[in-house]
Design a protein around this nucleic acid. Structure first.
Lengths: 135, 135
DNA sequence: ACTCTAAATGCAACATTGTTGCAAAACAAA
DNA sequence: TTTGTTTTGCAACAATGTTGCATTTAGAGT
C-alpha cells in the first residue's frame, strides 16, 4: 500500500510532508532519528515535522522506537491502529553505527510480556545491529 | 550503607551534590526526574547536577530508568558495578501521577531476556503505579 | 594544620529539541 | 471554484544536552 493510500485509509489529509515521512520510514530498514529526518526534509519547517510525527504516531502509522539523550528515533508501524498498538518487537540501539533496528521477539518472550498488567510495553537493548554484524 | 560510604567504596570524592543526589534517590521509592532533582537541589548549578548524574551513572550507582519527551528519570542502582549492570526490573511510567517506578520482573521473563544476544536490556511500560492503584 | 595537585564546581555560552500561538496557505468537499 | 477546516510556516520561548574555562574543593602527603 502506498503512503497516500495509507493516509486515505486513516482519513488523514494527504499532505506533502506526511507522504514524505511515511515514504521515508517505509523504505528504511532502521528507525530514523528526528535530526536525520529534519536534514532529509529540510524543505519543511521543523515544527511541521514535529507535528507530523505527533499526528502519525497518534494514528498508529509510526511509533517512537527509541529515545536517548533527547534524540528520538521513529519507525513505521505495521498492524497498529489508534486503539491497538502491536509493538511486539524490541528496539536495538546499535553500539557500532548508532542506528536503531526493530527486531522481532520470540513467542516465549511475547507470552511473558502478555502476562504483565501494563500497556505499551517497550523493550530496548544495546548491541550490534544486523548490518554492522554482517559487515 | 550511607551515601558517603558508597562513594568511598567506588573511590569517588564525597562532594555535597553527590551525597545529596544519592541520599535523595536512595530514599525515594520512585525514580526522580531531572527537573524534580533540579528543583530540590537548586543550590547547585544545573551543569553540576548534569555532570553528577553522568558520573554516578558511569560508576553504576544510579541509572536512567526512563526517558520520554526529553525528560529523564533516574533511580538508585542496586548491585551494579561499572562493568556489570544488573537491571532486572522494568520501569513503569504511571499514567496517573506521571512517576516512574522500578518493578521486579518474573524469573520466566528474566530467562527469556537472558537468551537475547544483547546488552543493557531495558523494559518500560505504561500503567498505574502501586501508589496510584492503592489510592 | 598547611600545602599541593587533581578533580569538581559554577558560570557562560551555544545547540537541539519540545511546545504553543497565530496568520497564511493548502486540502477536501460541495 | 468557492468555502470551511486543517495544516503549515514562522516567531517565540522553555527545557535539556553539552562544552570550555576559571575558580574552588577534596583528599593526599608533609
Amino acid at each position: 500500500m502506498t503512503s497516500e493510500e495509507t493516509l486515505e485509509q486513516f482519513n488523514l489529509r494527504k499532505t506533502k510532508i506526511r507522504i514524505a515521512v511515511l515514504d521515508s520510514l517505509s523504505q528504511s530498514a532502521v528507525a530514523q532519528s528526528y535530526s536525520t529526518m529534519q536534514n532529509a526534509l529540510h524543505e519543511f519547517d521543523r515544527t511541521t515535522l514535529y507535528r507530523t510525527l505527533l499526528t502519525l504516531t497518534e494514528y498508529g502509522l509510526i511509533h517512537k522506537a527509541y529515545e536517548e539523550n533527547g534524540e528520538s528515533f521513529y519507525a513505521r508501524c505495521f498492524g497498529c491502529t489508534e486503539q491497538v498498538h502491536n509493538h511486539e518487537h524490541l528496539h536495538l540501539k546499535c553500539s557500532s553505527c548508532g542506528g536503531v533496528e526493530c527486531i522481532e521477539i520470540s513467542d516465549q518472550l511475547k507470552s511473558s510480556l502478555a502476562q504483565l498488567p501494563f500497556q505499551e510495553i517497550n523493550i530496548s537493548a544495546k548491541g550490534d545491529c544486523s548490518a554492522c554484524v554482517s559487515a
